[in-house]
């Protein structure tokens, strides 16, 4: 009995040391994790995650301060990708951060715009063109649909319009199986 305990203890110690050594010796240097997390985020820079942009949120996730389910624009895809990347269990979107909405772009009603430049200052990706006292317009292809320009507008002339599908972006839907739906 005693020899067995001794042998096992010695083995445990040896393997423990080996593991400890390996952890130090083969440690991955640098912090590519933030970049990797950032790459999974949709870059809307909308701040719904309660961080001032996608990169700060990525840093918070990397530090373990933020959870992976705080990004409504990324939705399920982003949560799955992050869960996969960080080897965590996927979880549903945190409702405190918002709900998953259809993708939208901002459209400025150019007849009502007074050219105050407030929306230009709010836009995180410089997707609004215009100068003081001149009508502004949104570059639709650059707009991330973050909603941040809606709030500052004093005349309420910005609408978030859903991005329609056209025959170039349309894709075949997931086949629907009436038998499996029953479950």
């Amino acid at each position: 009995m005693l020899p067995a305990i001794i042998v096992l203890s010695v083995l445990a110690i040896i393997f423990g040391l080996l593991l400890g050594f390996a952890a130090i010796r083969f440690k991955v240097e640098g912090d590519p994790l933030v970049d990797k997390i950032d790459a999974q985020l949709p870059q809307t820079q909308c701040g719904q995650c309660s961080y001032p942009g996608c990169r700060p949120y990525a840093e918070a996730i990397a530090k373990g301060e933020a959870d992976i389910n705080q990004c409504p624009p990324g939705g399920e895809t982003t949560i799955m990708a992050l869960a996969d990347l960080l080897d965590r269990d996927p979880k549903p979107l945190n409702p405190e951060n918002g709900v998953i909405k259809e993708k939208t772009v901002a459209v400025i009603d150019e007849t009502r715009c007074i050219g105050c430049t407030l929306c230009i200052q709010a836009c995180p990706v410089d997707a609004i063109l215009g100068a003081a006292k001149h009508m502004h317009t949104v570059i639709a292809s650059e707009c991330t649909g973050c909603d941040l320009c809606v709030e500052p507008c004093p005349v309420d002339c910005i609408d978030m319009v859903p991005v329609g599908q056209d025959i170039l972006t349309w894709k075949w839907p997931y086949p629907d199986n009436p038998l499996e739906k029953a479950s």
């Binding site: 950032d38 809307t44 996608c54 650059e142 972006t169 349309w170 894709k171 075949w172």
Partner: peptide, 21 residues
């Protein structure tokens, strides 16, 4: 295939947004 293309498109778009930001 459509899903992969969409993902690529979105990735491209988010890369542009990141650079602009």
């Amino acid at each position: 295939k459509g899903d992969i293309w969409t993902q690529e498109r979105e990735k491209e778009k988010s890369d542009i947004a990141r650079r602009r930001h």
